[in-house]
Simulated scan of single mutants.
Amino acid sequence: MKRVYAMWMKSHPHRNPMPGRPAKPRRQTGTPEMSGPIRLYGLHTVEAAFANPERKRHRLFATPNALRRLQERGVFPDVPVEETTPKGLQKMVGQDAVHQGVVLEADPLPAYGVRELKGARLVLALDQVTDPHNVGAILRSAVALGADAVVTTERHAPDEGPVLAKSASGALDLIRHVRVKNMARFLEEMGAQGFQRIALDSDGEASLEDTPFAANVVLVLGSEGKGVRQGVRAACDRLARLDMPGKIRSLNVSNAAVLALYISRAGMGLRPSP
């Protein structure tokens, strides 16, 4: 009987021959979850990873020239270092990766949650923005413009990985990246803590410049095309739009984030630190 069953399964690998007994679920293909060490590359990314006490580092692969450049930046590795060649690094991270002669093997950052937002003033929330290049660019802009955290969903958002880290150019280790299961519920919790929740929407009742800001704000941006989802909009206090004076009426989400953060800081009366 076992032999017959094995032969049947070999010719019918995805069917269940025994009624009443559920078939084993098939493994899903696609991007795997980050469950072990990742490889971070690029001088800015690696420098920020060494400066972050919450980043658990394991091993550094670098060319002699890259090691000198890191030391010039004040980075003295506290992990084993293996000198290698640019071709050796390309084999590790791919031909198209701009590694700048350095690859760091490290663990993903700890899972940050709402508790890490205590004392925050300006938080940027991304509703199902999936492109790691866009999210990385937004993380970098959020650091530059003094946001306290960037919030994404656990699903339909990029995992922490080499592409996201490189696109963020070090920002991943300089700002809290909070991941939540349910964006609408997260916004309700933030509202209960006294945060004003503003979603960017082309049908907003006022432009963002004309929106009155509270002392603490969560700014919500949606994916290109779909925008902020209906349930997430319903959890916000206001809908605001970005009015463009030129012939092109909309911006890429990463560019929209820069403009929205700048306007929000001005509206909240936040001034650059000296």
Rank of each mutant, 00 (worst) to 15 (best):
A120L: 11
A48P: 00
R238V: 10
R155N: 12
H156Y: 14
D78F: 01
A214G: 15
F186Q: 03
V4M: 11
A97R: 08
P37T: 12
D203P: 07
T45E: 05
T152E: 12
P17A: 09
Q28W: 12
A149L: 09
L109S: 00
K247M: 12
D173K: 01
H156G: 00
N255K: 03
A66V: 02
G267A: 09
S35W: 07
M1N: 05
R39C: 08
M7P: 00
I138A: 03
A142T: 03
I38K: 02
K118Q: 15
E188M: 15
E47Y: 05
S202A: 15
E47M: 11
V253R: 02
F213R: 05
R155K: 14
A168N: 04
V129H: 04
G101C: 09
E189M: 14
I38C: 06
C236N: 02
R233F: 07
V143L: 09
R3Q: 14
E154T: 14
V135Y: 05
Q128P: 01
W8C: 03
L251H: 07
A235E: 02
A125Q: 06
L221Q: 08
A266Y: 09
L126A: 03
R233V: 10
R249C: 04
S11T: 13
G88A: 11
D173P: 02
A165L: 01
Q100F: 00
P108T: 10
R115L: 10
G231N: 14
T29N: 13
L117C: 08
Q90L: 03
E116M: 05
L122A: 06
A257V: 08
S202N: 14
A23N: 08
R115C: 02
L200Y: 02
L145Q: 02
F76G: 01
D127S: 01
T211G: 05
T45H: 07
D159C: 03
R15F: 10
M190K: 12
I138R: 01
M92V: 09
G101E: 00
A199H: 01
H99E: 03
V150T: 08
L67A: 05
E160P: 03
E224A: 02
T31W: 09
A266S: 12
F186L: 11
V46A: 00
G74V: 08
S202M: 13
S202C: 13
L70R: 01
M1P: 06
R185P: 00
R176G: 04
E105C: 06
R21P: 00
L60N: 00
L221W: 04
A142R: 01
V4H: 14
D78C: 07
L242H: 03
V114C: 08
L270P: 05
V180N: 06
G222E: 03
E154G: 06
S273M: 13
V103W: 02
V178N: 05
D201G: 08
A171W: 04
N182Y: 09
R249Q: 15
K247T: 15
A120M: 10
N16C: 09
M9N: 08
N252V: 08
I175G: 07
N252W: 06
Q230M: 14
R57E: 05
G231S: 12
G119I: 15
V102E: 01
L251K: 08
T45N: 07
R39S: 10
E82G: 00
H44G: 03
P37R: 12
